[in-house]
């Protein structure tokens, strides 16, 4: 069985009955198979392209937003998992968001996110199906591609003179529906 030592679970303060669990995997090869499993719902998790993640906090901001939408009955996508992907995206187009932030054949590393995974079974199931090695979360930065992040979130160098990349990203996620 895959080791789950590297999974981290965060209680959501704002929605006290919810948790967000995050794990990092590297060395994915079975992209086509994974895609089918995600679509058929055999994987109950959001799988994010690790390149576009600069910090765990970025994932927490998006996942908290998704948990909030679910709790208010305002999910914009079909499941909490796709909602995590959608929340992560600055775009209001669902298909585009899932394509941009989901796993694509060019990704070797993914960040897996499970919501309310109280017994850890969901992430264990991911670990079994994903056919890749689980890595410690603090290695996340090795996979980050800042240039892609700046491009996807439209962050200029002028902005980064006064802001950390993470703050720029978090703000765009948080205020997305007001940013028109």
């Amino acid at each position: 069985m895959a080791s789950c030592d590297h999974v981290r679970t965060f209680p959501v303060d704002l929605f006290p009955n919810s948790t967000i669990s995050i794990a990092l995997f590297d060395g994915i090869k079975n992209h086509d198979e994974l895609k089918k499993k995600i679509i058929s719902g055999k994987i109950d998790a959001a799988l994010l392209s690790a390149k576009k993640i600069c910090d765990i906090f970025q994932v927490l901001v998006a996942a908290t937003k998704a948990v909030g939408a679910k709790s208010n009955g305002k999910l914009k996508t079909r499941s909490i998992n796709s909602e995590v992907l959608f929340s992560l995206s600055p775009s209001n187009n669902i298909t585009e968001s899932l394509r941009t932030f989901g796993v694509s054949p060019s990704d070797s590393a993914v960040v897996a996110v499970t919501i309310d995974d109280f017994d850890g079974l969901k992430i264990q199931n991911v670990a079994q199906q994903i056919n890749a090695e689980m890595k410690p979360l603090d290695q996340l930065n090795r996979y980050t591609d800042e240039d892609i992040i700046k491009k996807v979130y439209k962050i200029s160098d002028a902005e980064l003179k006064h802001s950390k990349l993470l703050d720029s990203v978090a703000t765009r996620i948080a205020v997305k529906e007001f940013a028109t």
Partner: peptide, 18 residues
Amino acid sequence: LLRCRKAGIAVPAVYFMD
């Protein structure tokens, strides 16, 4: 806040909207 940030004016980051 977003407009300022994009213009390169230092403003607080937003983390969450309840």
